[in-house]
């Protein structure tokens, strides 16, 4: 028998018996960050490829969601802070070693950039829109002439943001479930896929949907591949990693993860999307909805389960 107990009594809120210091705010923040990264990445990509006409929703309309999602995400992060009056301290230093710090700074750049992007297309969205301020009109002219550099910046920052949502977790050595370098790419791919799902849902053009659906199927395959890799890595790892994997292989998260995230959130949408490409009629919102829901569930599970995993001693 091996038993360990606190005989001095220790029942600190949110820490004992299991760490549970991050609640819904962090997964929502990560989700909205990934979703925004996905939309911005493809908006940038198809601008660079000169496909504004064919891929209208991707380039022009979906990016209107981004500033909203980012501001909501930042608000969720703010709600998570326990010493909120001091939140401005985030922006008085840059600490490269702290993902929380450079992530906050990335958002600081990317949010205004996404607003500029949306502002460029607002006249097309709302005919008759008028800034009424000269300087804004001039600025708009300037940005319109420089859409390509802006698109490159958006794409680059979108990748940083997408990877960041994973690195925020993977940087914690103390939580074996998170402490794997696959989490960065996995969260990036998942973010791109949720972004695509949102665009596909919004798009009215058959051509555009077809292109995006093909990309989405590929991304889902990569994601499945990364998930398998994740577990292979855990099972070949040390005792703490194996324990982390066991939470998903027979442990309390087995059904929600494999049933909810992998089957409902990845495999079924991929099958539906393939059927759609093959010419069957599938209501377009179903695979998109499943991907979006699966992505959210994935982040909730990872944040909650990760906090349970720990070093044994």
């Amino acid at each position: 028998m091996k038993e360990e107990l606190f005989i001095s009594g220790r029942d600190i809120p949110n820490i004992d018996p299991f760490l549970n210091i991050w609640h819904w705010e962090i997964p929502v923040y990560l989700y909205l960050g990934g979703l925004s990264a996905g939309i911005m990445f493809f908006a940038g990509l198809f601008t660079i490829l000169d496909k504004e006409k064919e891929m209208e929703t991707t380039v022009k309309w979906a990016p209107f969601l981004v500033p909203v999602a980012l501001v909501l995400g930042l608000f969720a992060l703010f709600l998570d802070l326990k010493h909120q009056l001091f939140f401005w301290r985030l922006y008085t230093t840059i600490r490269i070693e702290s993902p929380m710090s450079w992530g906050a700074w990335t958002l600081m750049f990317i949010t205004p950039l996404s607003m500029v992007w949306a502002a460029v297309y607002i006249k097309e969205l709302i005919p008759g829109w008028n800034w009424k301020i000269n300087i804004v009109d001039q600025f708009e002219e300037f940005v319109k002439k420089n859409m390509k550099p802006l698109a490159w910046a958006m794409m680059g920052l979108a990748i940083v943001l997408g990877v960041y949502t994973g690195i925020l977790l993977s940087a914690f050595n103390a939580r074996p479930l998170w402490n794997t370098s696959i989490l960065g790419p996995l969260f990036l791919v998942s973010g791109l896929s949720t972004g695509l799902a949102a665009i596909i849902w919004m798009s009215k053009s058959h051509f555009e949907r077809k292109v995006l659906t093909k990309i989405d199927i590929a991304l889902i395959c990569v994601e499945l591949f990364l998930i398998i890799h994740l577990f292979m890595g855990f099972l070949a790892g040390s005792a703490v990693s194996i324990e982390a994997a066991e939470l998903f292989l027979g442990g309390p998260f087995t059904t929600t993860f494999w049933g909810g995230v992998v089957i409902l959130g990845l495999i079924i949408p991929a099958i539906l999307e393939t059927l759609e490409l093959a010419g069957y009629k599938v209501p377009v919102w179903i695979p998109s909805f499943l991907v979006l829901l699966g992505g959210l569930l994935f982040r909730f599970i990872m944040v909650e389960a990760g906090q349970i995993t720990r070093f044994l001693y």
């Binding site: 210091i21 326990k82 103390a174």
Partner: peptide, 26 residues
């Protein structure tokens, strides 16, 4: 008064040696 209470350090400690004070800081 520099701590924002983000909880990152609590996650990072393998010994669970930190806690979130009711006043907000760690």
């Amino acid at each position: 008064n520099e701590c924002i209470g983000c909880g990152a350090c609590i996650q990072s400690c393998p010994y669970d040696a930190r806690y979130s004070h009711p006043d907000g800081y760690v």
